[in-house]
Amino acid sequence: MVATTGGSIVSDAPLKGRRPVSRSFWATARRRLSQDKVALVCGSILLIILLAAIFAPLITPHDPYRTSMARRLLPIGDARHWLGTDELGRDLLTRLIYGGRMSLFMGFAPVVLATLIGGFLGIVAGYCGGAINMLIMRVTDVFYAFPSVLLAVAISGVLGAGLVNSLVSLTLVFTPPIARVAESVTTQIRNQDYVEAARATGASAWRIVFGHVLANVTGPILIYASSMISVAIVIASGLSFLGLGVSPPNAEWGLMLNTLRQSIYVAPMNAILPGVMIFITSMSMNLISDSLRASMDVKV
């Protein structure tokens, strides 16, 4: 042990006043996000939709599947059916709330799966480089050749309609772009001095990947993935609209849009309601994603 006497070079005066609290990257991002009004409003909207979807049976006034020929296409503002009824006389408010369950699930689940798979593939490709990188990235490039909607429709068409199949097809659609983001960030990080410094202290490849690379890649991937959620909601609705997603009589926004389409000349306001829900949800998600990007932008 060395004595640090002998005229300490730097001033060792005790720091006075309020102790500045050291904030981590995530704490800083959280604080910035909580000061962002747009993020707060959009977050509240999403939270309301999410809670309504979760507690749907408790808060909805009607049975979502109960049809009534006498009460078909009641207009918005009806005394018993606040948002009117659909072409089979089912309460629209109830069905929109129930539909949120499916639509939100189809928005989040494939993106979460794609983030895990794509993130793993991208980090492996970026860190290993060489032939492994070539193999993984060229395969993802093949998926890139198709527009995402077309690809989702094609895969769902092959697999057949159904919830699980839509989930699989959407996951396949979102994995390549996330893998690409993960790969490019990993390639950048791999050449950073701190990775070499870690290697110089004897860190193994696994420790570098799970310690340094993962910690630094998570931010960019999360930002990108959050912007994918709205796209997933829209594509999932599109699949249902085309009859490739959820099947009737289940409530799902895209499916409702499809069945209400036939009544668009009779009750246009009723027909666009599912579309309005898709719009509000995906836009909120997009704006939150933007705020997330701004709050994670590390400029000290």
Binding site: S22, S24, F25, Q192, D193, Y194, E196, A197, A198, A200, T201, G211, H212, A215, N216, V298
Partner: peptide
């Protein structure tokens, strides 16, 4: 053997203390 690097800003990982 250990090494001190030239640029301390980039040789320390920004996300860890």
């Amino acid at each position: 053997v250990s090494m001190i690097f030239q640029e301390p800003m980039t040789a320390l990982d920004p996300v860890f203390t």
